[in-house]
């Protein structure tokens, strides 16, 4: 359960096969949903298609050191849905506030857990909630650069930054390893997360 991302560890063969099995399962499920009915012919043709897809377009190795935690997943899903609704309504109201020029900011958020998977999922979650958009990422330092709309001042910027860290924490508590959860207690690297 060692996930030291400073030197990217070689992905063990066993977990590569596990990743491929997960990918095949997901692809077969998509195939079945597209057909809409379960039949053995669909299952077998789906398996054939997904194997061909994985051979022709191999996926990059994903390091997944943690495990799925049901409570963490539920907590994340609930907060994600409420955030989605609240932020959608806020942005809709903003769109109808004629004569109001919204100000925005581009902020740097170096994540505390150095994992590509956490970086991707946090980016997706932040990006799906209205009002924030990923402008750039830095994989080496697992940093997200986020464009936030409708921030009036520095205080609002800092509030949003805390928000992103909370999203990261919820994701790690849902899928991370014990070591990754402990990393959440680390302070944000000095001079990186603060305004200069």
């Amino acid at each position: 359960m060692n996930n030291d991302a400073a030197a990217p560890p070689a992905v063990p063969v066993r977990s590569r096969w596990r990743d491929r099995a997960v990918a095949v399962t997901v692809l077969v499920m998509v195939w079945m949903l597209l057909w809409g009915v379960f039949s053995w012919a669909n299952l077998i043709s789906g398996l054939a298609v997904s194997v061909v897809v994985l051979v022709v377009f191999p996926l990059p190795p994903v390091i997944f050191a943690g495990r799925l935690r049901l409570l963490g997943l539920l907590h994340f899903a609930w907060r994600f849905l409420t955030d989605l609704v609240v932020a959608s309504v806020q942005l809709a109201v903003l769109a109808f506030r004629f004569g109001h020029q919204p100000r925005s900011a581009i902020i740097r958020v170096p994540l505390r857990v150095p994992s590509d998977l956490v970086l991707t999922l946090t980016g997706e979650a932040v990006s799906l909630v209205p009002g924030s958009l990923i402008v750039d990422t830095d994989q080496a330092s697992t940093t997200l650069y986020i464009h936030v709309i409708n921030v009036a001042d520095r205080a609002a910027v800092e509030a949003f930054r805390r928000n992103v860290y909370e999203t990261e924490a919820r994701i790690v508590r849902a899928i991370g390893s014990d070591a990754e959860i402990r990393m959440l207690d680390h302070p944000v690297p000095a001079g990186k997360g603060e305004l200069t």
Binding site: P102, S104, I106, I107, D138, V151, D153, R154
Partner: peptide, 11 residues
């Protein structure tokens, strides 16, 4: 001119 802060520019 509409940005409160741009932390990507420096980086």
């Amino acid at each position: 001119d509409l940005l409160v802060v741009d932390e990507l520019a420096g980086d």
